[in-house]
Amino acid sequence: MTAEQLLDVASVPGECTLAGLRTNVEVAIRYLAAWLAGNGAVGIHNLMEDAATAEISRSQVWQWIDAGVVLDSGDTVTEELVRRVIDEEVAGIGQLDRLDDARRLFEQVALADEFPDFLTLPAYELIS
């Protein structure tokens, strides 16, 4: 395996989808709300999720914005698109403890100009 092969994202099967973006946003925000409320792991859509899931989700969103990925819907992933998806997904979640904090935290770590090392670092400020 060469460095060029590892960086050849186009050779990976599959596609970037609007449904995938929505899932990343919703699951990360749901998990962050649970984490901020004191839960280390939580069932979301019949799957046990933890901080790694939220890290993967926010990382992918950040990377898709940074790379200007075009989704199956034809939309380019931009901060504006992600903010719209966040609005829609949070509205669909309804009432959830710490939801507003989770939303702000997700926006902070997924929409930053520079990629934050870990989402839990700024999260600790919300629980201390």
Rank of each mutant, 00 (worst) to 15 (best):
R83Y: 03
L7Y: 11
E55N: 11
L6Q: 12
R83T: 09
W62C: 12
V69F: 12
H45Y: 14
E114Y: 15
V12R: 15
D101G: 06
N24E: 05
V42Y: 14
S11A: 14
A10D: 13
A34G: 00
G74K: 01
D113C: 11
A51K: 14
L111D: 12
L81G: 00
E4P: 12
I93V: 06
G68P: 04
D66H: 13
A51L: 12
A67L: 14
A54Q: 09
L126D: 04
F115G: 10
W62L: 14
L6H: 05
S11T: 13
A37Y: 02
V25L: 07
I56V: 14
A67I: 09
L7T: 06
A52E: 15
E80K: 01
D50L: 09
W64A: 15
V9D: 08
G40P: 02
E107N: 04
I65E: 06
A67Q: 13
I56A: 15
I93F: 02
H45E: 12
I56P: 11
T78M: 00
T76Y: 00
V70K: 08
V42L: 13
A19V: 11
T2L: 07
P13N: 07
E88H: 08
I29E: 02
L96W: 01
S128H: 05
P116A: 10
I65L: 05
G40I: 04
A3D: 08
I29G: 02
G43Q: 09
V77M: 02
V42K: 12
G20L: 14
D66M: 10
A102V: 10
D87S: 12
A3Q: 09
Q63I: 15
W62A: 13
D66Q: 12
